[in-house]
Amino acid sequence: MKRLSDSFTRLESEGRSGLACYFTAGDPDFSSCLALLRGLCAAGADLIELGLPFSDPVADGEVIQAAHRRALASGQTVARTLRLVQALRETDATTPVVLMGYLNPVFQYGESFFAEAAAAGADGLILVDLPPEHAEPWSRAADAAGLALIRMSAPTSSDERLMTILPGAKGFLYHVSLNGTTGAASCAPEEVGKALARIRAQSPQPIAVGFGIRSAEQVKALNGVAEIIVVGSHLVAKLAKEGNAAALAEVRLLAAPLRASSRLAKNEGAR
């Protein structure tokens, strides 16, 4: 988890939000995905979200569902995903990697998953379909391994529901910016700001916001609103249509307003 905390400290010192980029592990194959991941930090990604391929990704829209199918067809498994993280760590020791997926593959893998994920170099885990009421044994296993089990909130999360979600949040809170699946619609930054203000009234946890973010303009509008801004379906679609080079170029475009903000903050500090 140290990579996560170090990343948030750095972003705060630079006076900007960070960019998280989601891709599905093994899409379209292991070697291509590894090359993509190795290029992300240089392109401007501050955090990598790596999807665990699964046959029934119910929170995801058509774009990421297709990525899961491609990855599974190429032979990607949970074990191969951990090997992918391990291979990335051979060239990148600092960029946080958060695994994102569903409970079933982790359950099927067994109790050793958390320790093996941490040993491979993962920093956190988001299990989209794990409600906080059933999270305790999984949280204990993650804590023992030094892996942040990250919780999620949504626009429908009432203040009462947040009181259940937030106390067990580790690493950061992932806020889903809209009602619907990934890539289903565009988020409204002003509505996100209101939702995050409610959350911050109850918890000091850093917040990542994702679902429905697909343009540099949205990223710029959310800069400073959330600690981490997550782009997924938009990048996965770019990868599927045009390949690694186009996906990395899109990451550079999305990161540009955040990096400009960082330079401005440094210049102001120098004065």
Rank of each mutant, 00 (worst) to 15 (best):
Q205F: 15
V106P: 01
L147C: 08
T95H: 05
S5N: 02
R69F: 12
A142M: 14
L248C: 03
A79G: 13
A145L: 04
S262W: 07
V63S: 10
L88F: 01
R38Q: 13
A119E: 11
G146A: 05
A197P: 00
A25F: 03
A197F: 01
L196M: 05
S177W: 11
A154M: 11
I207H: 02
P204K: 02
D46K: 14
A145D: 12
L178N: 14
S158L: 06
S203V: 13
L239N: 07
S112C: 07
G101A: 02
A42P: 06
I229N: 04
K238F: 05
V78A: 02
A255T: 11
G26V: 03
K241E: 14
S13A: 14
E49R: 07
A25I: 04
C41L: 08
A154D: 12
L149I: 06
D6E: 10
A221V: 13
P57E: 09
P189L: 15
T94W: 04
G232W: 10
S13R: 15
E49I: 01
P105Q: 14
A43Q: 03
E14D: 15
A255S: 14
A73P: 05
Q108F: 09
C33D: 04
A59P: 06
R271P: 03
V106F: 01
G15R: 09
L103K: 00
L37A: 01
P155E: 10
Q86L: 00
S158W: 10
F113A: 03
G101W: 03
L222Y: 08
V230L: 12
P155C: 09
V225E: 05
R89Y: 00
P57Q: 13
A79P: 00
A255G: 12
A35I: 01
T182Y: 01
G121Y: 00
E190G: 07
L88V: 03
M100W: 02
C21I: 08
L34Y: 03
E217F: 08
P131E: 13
A255V: 12
S203Q: 07
R200P: 13
S74L: 09
V128P: 06
V230Q: 02
A249S: 10
S139M: 07
S177N: 11
T91C: 03
G51S: 04
L88E: 04
F54I: 04
V236R: 02
E227L: 05
C21Q: 04
P28T: 07
A221G: 12
R16Y: 15
A237D: 14
V128S: 15
L82N: 06
F30Y: 13
G51R: 04
A185N: 07
A208H: 04
A79N: 00
L222Q: 11
E217V: 15
L264S: 13
S153M: 09
R89W: 00
L248V: 05
K194I: 12
E133N: 11
W138Q: 05
K241H: 09
L72P: 13
F107W: 08
A115H: 12
D159Y: 03
H234A: 15
V97T: 09
G180I: 01
P204A: 12
H234S: 15
S139C: 07
T77D: 06
